[in-house]
Write a protein that binds this DNA or RNA. Structure first.
Length: 120
DNA sequence: AATGTGACATACC
DNA sequence: TGGTATGCCACAT
């Protein structure tokens, strides 16, 4: 019975799970920005909260592909928070995302906007 | 309760 | 062109 199907509508879970949900919805081989997620959640200026949520992502039972979330620049700003400093880049490269100098190449090509892809 | 911090974003100098 | 400053909201101490 413990089907913990997390829902964004669960106000009980707040911002965090909402962020996690969106991040999990990111297709393989794609990436998005903190601002885009926060915008999708309604707090367009709360990008920092998204980053905060990611910080807690490792505490979640359900895996969250935090490596698919980068800043507006396409830069892997949070790679230091991963298991290894290179874990994030490696994970992205596995998904056919080219990373050079801690930055996603051709970022707009892999960019995945939840407000558009999820149908705003 | 108040202050500080944070994996960002935008504006200004 | 890049550093500094402020906004934003939630969490930790």
């Amino acid at each position: 019975m413990p089907d913990n199907t997390i829902k964004i509508s669960e106000k009980n879970k707040d911002y965090f799970d909402a962020v996690f949900q969106v991040v999990r919805l990111i297709p393989r081989g794609r990436a998005t920005s903190y601002g885009a997620i926060s915008n999708y959640l309604g707090t367009k200026s709360g990008a920092r909260m998204v980053g905060w949520a990611m910080n807690a992502s490792h505490t979640q039972k359900v895996p969250v592909p935090a490596h698919r979330v980068v800043n507006r620049n396409g830069m892997l700003t949070g790679k230091h928070h991963f298991s290894s400093p290179t874990a994030m880049q490696e994970a992205l490269e596995v998904e056919c995302i080219n990373v050079k100098g801690d930055k996603i190449q051709n970022f707009q090509s892999v960019y995945w906007d939840p407000t558009e892809e999820l149908g705003f």
